[in-house]
Amino acid sequence: MARSTIAKSLITAAGVAGGLVLLTAAGAGFVMARVARTVITPVRKRPQNQSIRAVDDEAGTVTLKDTPDSAVPGRYGLWFDDDTGYARIGGVIEKRDGTVTRDVQRVAFGELRPTTRARLSGYYYLEPEELGLSANSVMIETELGEAPAWHFPAEGIDDGRWVIQVHGWGATRQEGLRAVPVFHREGFTCLLASYRNDGDAPPSADRRYGLGGTEWRDIDAAIRFAQENGARSIVLMGWSMGGAVVLQTITRSSASELIRGIILDSPVIDWIDTLEYQARLLRLPDPITQGALRLIESTWSGPITGLGAPIDLASMNFVARASDLALPMLILHSDDDGFVPSTASRALARARSDIVTLVPFATALHTKLWNYDEERWTNAIADWLGDTVG
């Protein structure tokens, strides 16, 4: 789930609210509908919210506008010229005069040059081949049709241990490529699944996100695919909204007996907590926020939101539903996450300390924990796998 994507859309809604001053009843209704639709509508074009100030080909550096994303240590992907170019960038070399200069590791395509149309990404890898591992593309039969997935078979003796990765809001399977090496080293077959309305898998009739309430069926299909192809135990990993999808899957799947544990990176544990947090950051009036939530949950609001069926947000609060959980769980979350607050992750870890292992970060932002500190992130997963699922 990309903070820049949904936050930019909500900022637009907030601007509309400000323009209406104290809001007439009709104006309030319009803004509520706008906010509700923003949450559940997939966004294909990512906001270009970064600028490239200078490029030094001889030194192998790029200078960016100083922002929280550009200033954080680690290695990242840099999209530029409206996503027609892509480069991998490394650590911070210098910060001064409102700019950040970083190492350029590789320009994958496009001409890296100054532009105001750029954005930073945690993806880093774009294609399976970049990992140097055996991989193939497969199709998973879902109730909506065939959904593509990337399959990385375990090397050597295959003992039937699989990991199925589930990407987040506004993301794709590319999000999980950086996690494949650690699972591969630990002897797991890895499957990176797609799900309805993500731009890869077949869309639903309403072409709206179910925030986990519908997408879990596609991950259930991925579990059946894994079982048919030799999986005897499965770990599910969810990124951001993918965490909400995973939590729905383990509590609703008919094949849950195969699942041995779950790993969650920057997860949505409670949708209401997450959406209220976003609204507070954007200073949306509370009545607007609550009205938008009611629209998402209501049976009568389909013509307004475009949803084919209401979303039961209360059932997606897994702090309140902590007693429904039984599987061992690893949660990795940064306290400075500007999209999904770590409060629910911490609350769930307190409520279910018997099954939840929380690895907190302080300054890694949203779904960029691997990018910020790959060694700590990787070791946390490897250790948990060894201690929990063998």
Rank of each mutant, 00 (worst) to 15 (best):
Ser233Ala: 11
Gln48Ile: 09
Ser51Ala: 13
Arg280Gln: 14
Ala255Val: 10
Gly132Lys: 01
Pro153Gly: 03
Asp103Ala: 14
Lys8Asp: 15
Arg37Asp: 03
Ser240Arg: 01
Lys368His: 08
Glu186Val: 04
Arg346Tyr: 14
Gly386Ala: 15
Gly199Pro: 03
Val62Pro: 00
Ala221Ser: 15
Trp150Thr: 09
Asp373Ser: 00
Glu175Met: 04
Pro202Gly: 08
Ala179Lys: 06
Thr61Trp: 08
Glu58Pro: 07
Thr115His: 05
Ile272Glu: 11
Ile6Gly: 05
Arg119Ala: 04
Gly98Pro: 06
Gly238Leu: 03
Asp66Ser: 11
Gly74Cys: 02
Gly212Tyr: 07
Asp97His: 15
His184Lys: 04
Thr142Gln: 07
Arg321Leu: 02
Asn136Arg: 15
Glu143Gly: 11
Leu22Lys: 14
Lys368Gln: 14
Leu281His: 08
Ser254Cys: 10
Val31Gly: 09
Ala221Gln: 09
Val180Tyr: 04
Val319Ala: 01
Glu186Asn: 12
Arg161Tyr: 09
Ala231Lys: 08
Asp97Asn: 15
Ile52Ala: 00
Thr249Ser: 07
Ile304Lys: 01
Tyr86Leu: 05
Ala193Tyr: 01
Thr378Cys: 11
Pro202Arg: 07
Ala193Gly: 00
Leu191Cys: 06
Thr357Leu: 07
Ile263Val: 15
Ala17Met: 14
Gly91Pro: 12
Ser137Ile: 11
Arg208Gln: 06
Ser323Gln: 13
Ser121Ala: 10
Pro203Tyr: 06
Asp383Ser: 13
Ile219Gln: 04
Thr357Met: 07
Pro285Phe: 05
Arg178Gly: 02
Glu215Tyr: 05
Glu129Gln: 14
Glu375Leu: 12
Asp158Trp: 06
Arg283Ala: 14
Asp324Val: 02
Val43Phe: 08
